[in-house]
Write a protein that binds this DNA or RNA. Structure first.
Lengths: 120, 120
DNA sequence: TTGACACATTCCGATATAGGCATATGATGG
DNA sequence: CCATCATATGCCTATATCGGAATGTGTCAA
């Protein structure tokens, strides 16, 4: 297998940089495919494929508007991602500043090898 | 190509469910590889590989402790992810509740086809 | 030094993905 | 109906990834 279990969820969808860019663009409102492709410097099929992934995981909606198809953001699927990552917030805001990093390094140096070159 | 450009960043690292589980476990403190493998029901090489990815993107640190190697969480790399996703917060907290969803559907129905069945 | 333990790495096969290109589908206007 | 524009899909190749099994590396104890 090449990407276990749920190969298509929000986490995977936003792992692709171009799809993230698409989502950012869509914050400005719904847009047709060609617009997105042009603004992001990708081909139209590329844009369509990325939009398909985003649609399948529910991060965008489509609406037919004449010949065009307007894609619109549906960010609700990002909420679980935000919450999961938020579960780590205290670990980067609480103790991992400069000082603590220095302490960590000291601790690591001390425990890894107090043999010959520990004065460096 | 199979996953454009930056194939190894925090976004990709957390796209893998098992790696997310590892990170969650490490919130409880540093742990040796075998511990993690056992608790997550995966083989030791599997755990080592996932830990390697996490280490390469800087989400964990390693510390040699005798025969063992203790992996420790370094969640700072998750901050950019949290901030990026947070940029969409207003799109799920502001307007996409039940009522708004209903309005969206009305709007969509109206614009897609105000022909015969628009009274439904 | 040897054996045992903890862990890392490598090789393999299967699968999924992304890009490029060609082509199909769908709606619109004449 | 036909041509055209907008978009979707299919095919192909290259590559990356995951899982599994085997093996390599490093550390400790006797």
């Amino acid at each position: 297998m090449a990407r276990a279990a749920t190969t298509s969820d929000a986490f995977n969808a936003i792992a692709e940089p171009q799809r993230r860019e698409i989502l950012v663009l869509l914050r400005g409102g719904e847009r047709p495919v060609t617009d997105l492709a042009r603004d992001l410097g990708m081909t139209q099929p590329q844009a369509s494929k990325h939009l398909r992934v985003l649609r399948e995981v529910g991060l965008v909606r489509v609406r037919g508007a004449g010949k065009q198809r307007l894609y619109d953001l549906d960010a609700r699927g990002l909420r679980p991602v935000h919450e999961w990552v938020g579960g780590f917030e205290r670990f980067w805001s609480e103790s991992f500043d400069r000082l603590d990093e220095y302490v960590q390094e000291l601790k690591q140096a001390r425990q890894e090898g107090p043999h010959d070159g520990d004065d460096q």
